[in-house]
Amino acid sequence: MKNIVVIGGGPAGLEASAQLHRLGYNVILVEKSPQLGGHLAKWDRLFPSGIPAKDVLEKMVSQINGVKYFLEANVQSINLLHKSYNVILNNGITVLADAVLFTTGFDLFPAQKKEEYGYGIYEKVITNADLENWFKTKKDNRVTENPKRIGFVHCVGSRDEKAGNRYCSKVCCATAVKQACEIKQEFPDVEVFCFYMDLRMFGRGYEDMYLSAQKDYGVRFIRGRVSEVAENINKELIVKAEDTLSGKPIKVTLDLLVLMSGMQNCSEGTKVAHQLGIANAGNDGFFETKDAIYSQQHSTREGIFFAGACTGPKTLPDSLSEARAAAIEIHNYVKGIR
């Protein structure tokens, strides 16, 4: 039986593992954290229709019966032996893999790097992940009852050369609009402001979500990036931006500011990729695929494959499609089908 190592137990890793297992391979899934699911396990509901993340994750996990997976496991070393890769994990397991799939996903941009927004300094500044956690658990002292005004900042650590990430993280606009509507469901009287530069509502149902945010929830969209956040004597946030549509500076006092942290390549995954010499190919930090259009699942090395957000920001359905595509590509590779 052929061995396939899948690195990363998020949605792409789970889906690819399930598919490869069905195709008859011995799959070894390596996950660094104590649970499967990656960021999805921390999310509450999913855009555009608000499906609970939990339901999707449960479905995925139910499909991996028979896949060997290791939690709290890291790839300690990986190198080529003849035609297969010798993968040594930190738990002492060694696998001789016929192919390796990177589904290492993304890290959220560390929002404290945008110092002017005061994440970690001003109490009422939180991130998209913090808010998802609040939706899930309703536990976060920073989200208080009866807020008057709440703001969302799009593109935090995205489209920002000084933050080191020039690219668009793709999913934050839709996440912001989803969260803005959800916060209005929680607090119907709150005034919600979304500070955006361009609204990138590219996917099916996204534009409807935007329209609904305006029409049904009265969310105010302000075209301008927040430039500075401060705290007043009542511990409320004072936010400065420009309303670029009227060309005037704007000031607003908020009870909560949510930063839409973007995606960057997973640092743990990058470390493993370094050992194979495939880490630094893309100048945006993501892994470079063999070909930008036709061979998205192939790395520049034989037998090493990619799926999901390790090759650039992706939505969940994007990642799942790539996972299935990668399973087929790996199958073709192992069978010697060109």
């Binding site: 404290q112 005061g118 970690g120 300094i121 001003y122 109490e123 511990k235």
Partner: peptide, 8 residues
């Protein structure tokens, strides 16, 4: 204001 955040 979270003082530790500033210290960082």
């Amino acid at each position: 204001m979270i003082y530790q955040g500033k210290q960082k």
